[in-house]
């Protein structure tokens, strides 16, 4: 299978990546190259093999339900917000979003 240019542009839009026509064409070639690798793998007979959800065959370690992040005086917030473009009243400000 191979991707069309408009499919590449749609994927870029969903990922909020701005691409020029030329970049989209380059990406299309790269992605199609990856698809050919996948096609080679899909030729392998995997019937009867349980799909893995992760490359490592391990199970998730769990955390006890305890509060470990404390910020009663807001000092940690202040540190995090020091690198934010704009904040006010403890909030991060972003361009207006309306449904």
């Amino acid at each position: 299978m191979s991707l069309s240019l408009s499919e590449v542009q749609r994927i870029a839009h969903l990922a909020r990546i701005e691409v020029s026509e030329a970049e989209a064409e380059t990406s299309r070639n790269h992605l199609n190259g990856i698809f050919s690798l996948i096609e080679a793998m899909q030729a392998v007979d995997t019937s009867g093999v349980e799909p893995m959800a992760h490359a490592q065959d391990l199970s998730q370690r769990l955390r006890e339900d305890r509060v470990t992040h404390l910020d009663e005086d807001g000092s940690r917030r202040a540190a995090f917000q020091a690198v934010a473009p704009e904040t006010e009243a403890g909030l991060y400000l972003v361009p207006k979003v309306i449904e």
Partner: peptide
């Protein structure tokens, strides 16, 4: 739960904005 699903921040309602954001 008292803490979040993937972090150790509190889930209590009504705290000052972003003070329970790890």
């Amino acid at each position: 739960t008292v803490s979040k699903i993937f972090s150790g921040a509190s889930t209590a309602f009504g705290a000052a904005p972003n003070t329970q954001a790890a």
